[in-house]
Design a binder for these strands. Structure first.
Length: 286
DNA sequence: ATGCCTCACAGCGTGAGA
């Protein structure tokens, strides 16, 4: 089972790249952020194409800003818009949706940016993360918290810590709020797989930052212990950041071994099937 | 070349993004 998260920075602007990418990578569960479309506009533009690709989806949208979605080919049950206790600014924004896909509670999150550390938006970000923690704490271990966290977990997740002094995304309170979430027992799948490597998921559009590999890792897939035990691969799909008309974020992809239950097929292979070699777990085909 | 910012809404500029 392949789970991906991608801040697309406008689904409307990214439509052709999004659909091509889905057809190429064939993720089973896709968390999208910054769709920047109302739910009606999303349905109008993507309903048929996603159906043809085999996806059900749940979308929470608004005009112009924010917007999140989950696409799934492995079931989409118990959809929740937002999460219990989610703060607004002052009204609820389209920043969270979750559903049970393939037996896992999957969140697609677009954490508030924070703007500047002295702003109301920064306080809102911290409150939002504290409420998120309480929601995730009630979910148990079969969980994948995915999305644009707008926090670089450590200094290793930015190209130059000195470049971000005094800015959001790296301040101790933000990192503490993220750590309080992961301290529930979640594993940062990409960092666990690449403990020593410089890995980024976002590069500013300006000044050739991508081409110089000056970025940040702020898009995360945080998985509960039983899910972490099933991780076969975890990586950033940098190819999706190249070329003409990319998002400023690249997708993050995690592959899991076959689910022990749920609706994506039997755990035990049929007697005729040869055993898999380690690391060669097959993904469900369309 | 992976190549020097993009998006939405408004309305030909402005605010936001991180």
């Amino acid at each position: 089972m392949r789970i991906a998260t991608w801040n697309v920075n406008s689904a409307k602007q990214r439509a052709p790249r999004m659909l091509d990418w889905l057809a190429e990578r064939r993720p089973d569960v896709v968390c999208l952020q910054e769709t920047k479309l109302t739910e009606e506009a999303f349905d109008e533009q993507f309903g048929d194409a996603l159906g043809e690709l085999g996806y059900e989806y749940a979308v929470v949208g608004q005009s112009a800003w924010n917007g999140v979605a989950i696409l799934s080919r492995v079931g989409l049950k118990d959809v929740r818009r937002g999460f219990p206790g989610m703060p607004g600014f002052p009204d609820a924004e389209a920043r969270a949706v979750s559903a049970v896909c393939g037996g896992i509670r999957v969140y697609s999150l677009y954490v508030p940016n924070g703007r500047t550390p002295d702003s109301d938006h920064y306080a809102y970000k911290l409150e939002w993360l504290a409420a998120l923690r309480e929601s995730v704490a009630a979910d148990g271990g079969e969980v994948a918290v995915c999305g644009d966290m707008n926090i670089a977990p450590t200094d290793a997740d930015v190209f130059d810590p000195a470049a971000y002094v005094g800015q959001t995304h790296v301040t101790p309170p933000e990192r503490a709020a993220l750590a309080a979430l992961t301290d529930l027992g979640l594993v940062d799948a990409v960092r666990a797989r690449w403990p020593e490597d410089q890995v980024f998921s976002y590069w500013d559009y300006r000044a050739g930052m991508f081409h110089k590999n000056l970025g940040m890792r702020i898009d995360l897939i945080l998985v509960g212990a039983p899910v972490a035990d099933r991780v076969q691969a975890a990586w950033v799909d940098r190819a999706a950041r190249k070329g003409k008309g990319p998002s400023d974020h690249a997708p993050v992809i995690v592959d899991l071994d076959t689910a022990p239950d749920g609706d994506i097929g039997p755990m035990v292979p049929p007697p005729s099937a040869k055993p898999h070699k380690p690391g060669s777990a097959r993904l469900p085909q369309a």
